[in-house]
């Protein structure tokens, strides 16, 4: 069991913090630039320990996010499951990328995430301004290296294991 020594506490704490950070009110000008905390943290853990943080984790987190944000039940769940599936599918390749390449990949994954959300909104007939959909991507791209740096110890352990 590769990732058995990662204690369950840190992932749970980071995932709950991601939910809290998603709900913390920001001043109006900064609000559109809120990073997509939940997919970022989920991508991190599923890259690191895909055998422990898989599709089901993403699904439950998505449902919680849906309830928290008042979206359609299943909207964020679907988007997160797609992102995590792609991450796990290619985790062996992605994991060895240098940091900048990893960031680009994460932004691409988030583009897919935003697209799924946007698509569901469109199908459900909800009015959503398209322009504001892309601003969280900028913030997420900036925050991703910080997440990596903060949780770096675990990343190195993962790479050593391979």
């Amino acid at each position: 069991m590769a990732a058995a020594h990662i204690h369950w506490r840190l992932p749970v704490v980071t995932l709950v913090s991601a939910l809290v950070l998603t709900a913390v009110p920001l001043p109006a000008p900064a609000a559109p630039f809120r990073p997509e905390w939940v997919p970022l943290i989920l991508i991190f853990w599923s890259l690191l320990a895909p055998e422990r943080f898989g599709l089901l984790t993403a699904f439950w987190m998505g449902l919680l996010l849906d309830t928290l944000s008042g979206a359609l039940l299943g909207q964020h769940a679907l988007a997160l499951v797609v992102v995590v599936y792609l991450t796990i599918r290619f985790h062996l390749q992605i994991r060895v990328f240098p940091v900048w390449q990893l960031s680009v990949t994460v932004v691409l994954l988030l583009v897919i995430y935003e697209f799924v959300l946007f698509w569901v909104d469109g199908v459900a007939g909800r009015t959503v301004p398209l322009a504001e959909r892309w601003s969280p991507l900028i913030a997420s791209a900036l925050i991703w290296p910080l997440i990596l740096a903060y949780l770096d110890r675990y990343r190195h352990e993962a790479q050593v294991r391979m």
């Binding site: 898989g54 039940l73 299943g74």
Partner: peptide, 21 residues
């Protein structure tokens, strides 16, 4: 088996959204 699970969860999500809508 992973792809199968992925598709299954996607279908569940879509079904949930449909019912919720």
């Amino acid at each position: 088996s992973q792809s199968f699970r992925f598709i299954l969860i996607c279908i569940v999500s879509l079904a949930l959204m449909f019912l919720d809508h």
